[in-house]
Structures are given as C-alpha cells and as structure tokens.
Design a binder for these strands. Structure first.
Lengths: 230, 230
DNA sequence: CTGAAAAACTGATAAAAATCATTTTTAATT
DNA sequence: AATTAAAAATGATTTTTATCAGTTTTTCAG
C-alpha cells in the first residue's frame, strides 16, 4: 500500500490543518514528514514520553486514553483521519499525559517539532485553528465532567453509545460499534458487569442490536432521551 | 477604591498575558479596556450568552460552573487574578458554555473582541501563551474526568480539598476554604449529606479543621494520600 | 477444525452513595 | 438581643453500583 503520499494528495487534505499552506510550503512539509503504518492496537505515543513532534492521521482511528488508579485505563476520546495528535504536550512542552493507541490499522504521519513550529509561525490561521481545536476539546471535556458528576451509569452509557455512533459512522449508514465491554466500561467509568447488564436492557428495549462484540444503534433518539442530551 | 488603573500598574501585570506588550500598545489597551467592580456572587457572564470580548481579573476570585441535569450546578474550576476568562468561547465563536460568578468582591477588566484580536495578531507570543493556557486546562479537565470515573467520593473530596487549598492559599500560610457544603458537593459530584459526613470523618481524623463554614487544611499530605494524587 | 484462552454473561451478595425526614446550628436582619 | 431563614448535621432507609464466583460463548492460534 502506498502511504507516503504528497500532503496535497492526502485524502484528508481539504479538511486538514494544512489546507491553507501555499504549494511551496506544502512540498516542503511533504519532504519533512514521515509516514508510518500501524497495526491495530499499537501505541503511537504513551504517557510519560517526551513529544518530539506531532502526528497527523492519514487513515484509521485512534483511541486516546489515560492511566488512572492502579493502572486502570480511562478512555478519553477518539481521533479520526485529519486530526492532529499530541498538540497539547508539544505546546506545553510536557511529557504526554495520555496514550494514543490505534483502534484499527492506520497510517499516521509524523512532523517534527521544529518543522511544525516553523510552519505555525508562518501561518497565523494555523495557530487560530489550533486554538479552536483546543477550545472545542476543552468544552467537550467539561461537558463530560458534568455528565460524570451528575448522571447515573445508565445515562452515561447511553450518552457514550450516541457519541460512538457519531465517531464510528461511515457515510450515512448506521454505524457498527466494535468495542469490548471492558473498553465501554472504561469510557463510562463503571464495572464491566454493569455495562453488560445495561446493554442487555438496551437490547431488550430495542434501542441497540447486539451481534457478538458488535453493537448496532437502532434507536438513536431513544438513547438520547435516556442520556438526556438535548 | 481606584480600579481603573493603567495596565502597566496593575498588580498582576508582571505575570499577566500582556506583560510582553510594548508601552505604546499597553497605553492603547488601557484606553480601550473597561474596569468593573463586582460584588461577591455576581455573574460576569452566563451560559448561552454571546461573548463580546474577554475578561481579565485584576483582583478577586471567580467560580466557573456549568448547568447540568435539571439545572444542577457543576463547579468546574476557579479563576484567579491575572487569569483571562471567556477565551474559549471568544475563539470558538460560540455562546458561553459555562457561567462565571465572582466568589468574593472583585475588580474585572473587559477588553472587546476586536481590540483583543488586534493585539493577539500583533503578538505571536500572546497566541502561544493562550494555546499554553488552553492546553493546561484541557490536561486538567482530562485528569478530572479520570478521577470522576475511577475514584469513590471520599477520594474525590480529599482531592478537591487539596486543590482548593492551592487555589485559596494567600502567601505561604495554610489557606481557609470558605465554600458551602453544597458547593463542595457540586465540585465533587455527590450529595450534600455525603459531603457533610465525609467532612466529619476528615475532622475526626485530624485532616481538616472545621470552624462553621470555614475549613482549614491541617494535614495536606494525609489528604493527598487519601486522594491518591502522587 | 479443534482446543485453549479470553471475553461475555448470569446470579448472589456486599458496599457505596442517594434520598428522605427531622433536628440542630449558624448567620443575617430587624 | 430576639427572630427567622438558611445551612449544617444526623439517622434511617432505599437505590445504585461494585464485587465475587461461576457458567457459557466467542475468538483465534495452531
């Protein structure tokens, strides 16, 4: 598979952070970046590691998680093609506070720190976009804090399924969510058994379909009603 | 009380976002800003309102909260002198996703959108600092999500007390935390009665002192041990 | 295709936390 | 200083959720 393509020919280029660069800078970026192919389940970076640059997802999906009490995984969010990963730590100059793991086979480009900052300085609209991204992530995080603080597990699980549906949907068709029960528990903040019991309830209520590990959202409106996300 | 002082003479100037501005821009900023005096408990902005600029705290403390299920308050964080408030929404161009309420009598300056962006564009290091602030807030928020998901109430309350101690400490002396039990519950995500019972336990264990509404941290290390924040 | 390991599921029980009802204390106001 | 409203505290009870122990199903390497 050809992965080391020109940025201008990248499937995510139009909607990417770099769409505003002029051809010359774009060619330069292409020469400086490095493309890597990752198998499902591989770490791109991990908690405590020093950032050397940023990662841009060409294809695939990535899980961002954090270690909590006694090494228990807390899943924070998912990154999709076109997303930059590791922005935060690169900017703050800290080690990564979380771990990025591919969720399926993925192609991810690496741009080193110096090159990235050079480009950022030249393109103020890139800075603006980064601020926008950080702002959006922060708003989502604070919404999640509120859910965690105030909603019971059933509501949080419904909320998570609705969010996942949006993340995993390809085209218009209803998406298939393929996460282990444990991963669902690590998103919602509950025990695996509780997730299993609640999924059975949702299935009983014809809100979801269950086919082995794969979940199918059947009644998104119904789940949203349970989740109380208006 | 004289509040409409020159930015360069502001008590928080040295450590402020604007410390890098040259004298000319600083004078201009001073002429464009507006100072307001707020009584304790007043809203500076509220959820759903459109941002018209940003707020810079000259003196006082501000509580940032969000409405959750059935209007229940979720307290997200506190802002201190020198902090900018409302950055996020101004950048994202959205209505405020949260409410800022003074926690004590405060003096807060307002800088309108246009002026602020003019300045930001002229000073790349200001953009960088904003990105840094947003990054830090995001990291803290994601840490809090993990706590909410994985820690029992007792640990979360201990954690909140340690954080509050750092927020409210003036100089080196141990700080006095003056929040209602309900507000503590709205930080931690629990019921008021649970907070009351746990505070009694902490008092019993000589971790805190209770004098009416005022709490005194007696054994920060001990609380950190309970909170499991190493 | 088969067997072992992992994941999913089920039921019983325990623990944590919320809710409800009531009393006591504190703070604010006249 | 007395009055009153709000906040804090306490006890009993219920609900929610976690934990434990065991069974069934699925997945995947050989």
């Amino acid at each position: 598979m050809l992965v080391d393509i020109k940025c201008s020919e990248c499937p995510v280029f139009k909607s990417s952070y770099f769409s505003g660069l002029d051809p010359c800078d774009l060619t330069d970026l292409y020469h400086k970046k490095t493309c890597y192919v990752y198998k499902k389940g591989q770490d791109i970076y991990y908690e405590g590691k020093k950032p050397l640059g940023i990662y841009c997802i060409q294809s695939g999906k990535v899980k961002i998680s954090k270690l909590g009490i006694e090494g228990k995984e807390q899943i924070l969010r998912f990154c999709m093609p076109g997303d930059l990963m590791g922005l935060r730590s690169l900017i703050a100059g800290n080690t990564y506070p979380d771990t990025a793991t591919t969720f399926e086979d993925s192609v991810i480009c690496f741009i080193n720190k110096r090159k990235f900052f050079q480009t950022t300085i030249r393109y103020p609209e890139l800075s603006t976009r980064i601020m926008l991204t950080l702002s959006t992530l922060l708003e989502e995080a604070e919404k999640k804090i509120t859910s965690m603080a105030q909603k019971p597990v059933r509501e949080r699980l419904a909320e998570a399924l609705v969010t996942l549906d949006e993340v995993f949907r390809s085209d218009g068709c209803s998406s298939v969510i393929s996460l282990s029960r444990e991963e669902l528990a690590n998103i919602v903040g509950t025990a695996v058994e509780t997730v299993i019991r609640l999924l059975s309830e949702f299935k009983e209520e014809r809100l979801i379909g269950v086919k082995g590990r794969k979940l199918l959202i059947l009644d998104k409106k119904g789940l949203q009603r349970i989740a109380k996300t208006y």
